[in-house]
């Protein structure tokens, strides 16, 4: 199995606060890798280090074969990213957003055109293609945001709580898109605090107070902790947390 993300004792300290404490894990190609944790557990910080948005304090990590300390520019060419905050331009239309992101990732005009057609069709947004993104419902925005994040066919896509604030049926549709992308060989690294979403992942990491407390497939975790649902695993682990969420 090809490894696309590898970390070894990766740590991030802010003054005397250890946001991420010596985490080590491997992510395989084409995998949907879930990062679970309460608010403040360090999920977003861990993800930002892997994306090159934040410099790790210590440890090692490679993403798509490139070192996060020395080759952030190479990493950027190989990843997609969808942030917690909604990340499309609200004052641009659907098509203009696709054109912009396609453009900055160096897609040709023809590729952009094909992608625009493909994306709007996939989302059933043909009619809305020329409307401002501002006017779309949140669920559509999130889905569009995800498809735009993988418009350049990255090796890995990082999703930071992509389904926050979206209703359950929309979340289901969103995960269908994630499966689609995984089928095409894109590795998915996703943080979430929706416990049911853990079941959709191939492997799940549970972070508590900046540390990785568990890492296995959802069924493996249930077996190991002798419970019916991931929720219970999470509650058992989270009970030990000293940090309160923000």
């Amino acid at each position: 199995m090809e490894t696309v993300i590898k970390t070894n004792k990766l740590t991030k300290r802010f003054a005397d606060f250890v946001a991420v404490d010596e985490i080590s894990f491997d992510v395989h190609k084409g995998e949907i890798f879930g990062f679970l944790g309460a608010n403040g557990a360090g999920k977003t910080t861990a993800m930002r280090m892997l994306c090159g948005l934040s410099v790790p304090t210590s440890g090692e990590a490679t993403v798509a074969g490139f070192d996060v300390f020395t080759q952030p520019e190479e990493i950027k060419k190989n990843i997609g990213y969808m942030s917690q905050k909604f990340s499309l331009y609200e004052d641009l239309t659907v098509l203009e957003n696709i054109q912009f992101y396609g453009g900055i990732y160096g897609l040709t005009n023809r590729e952009i055109k094909e992608k625009s057609a493909e994306l709007t069709e996939k989302l059933g947004l043909q009619k809305e293609a020329k409307k401002l993104v501002r006017s779309l419902p949140l669920g559509w925005k999130q889905k569009l945001s995800f498809l735009v994040a993988i418009v350049h066919q990255p090796k890995i896509v990082f999703l930071d709580e992509p389904t926050g604030g979206v209703d359950p049926s929309m979340r289901r549709e969103f995960w269908d898109l994630i499966y689609d992308a995984a089928d095409k060989g894109i590795t998915i690294f996703v943080t979430t605090h929706y416990l049911d979403e853990a079941e959709y992942c191939n492997r799940v990491t549970i972070m508590v107070d900046g540390k990785i407390e568990a890492l296995d497939s959802p069924s493996g975790l249930r077996e190991k902790f002798g419970v019916q649902k991931i929720d219970e695993v999470f509650y058992q682990l989270a009970r030990k947390a000293k940090r309160s969420g923000d």
């Binding site: 994306c51 948005l53 950027k76 942030s83 905050k85 990340s87 331009y89 609200e90």
Partner: peptide, 13 residues
Amino acid sequence: EMGTMEILLVSPV
């Protein structure tokens, strides 16, 4: 403010 800066920073621009 809009949060799009994060996306730009993650991109190769």
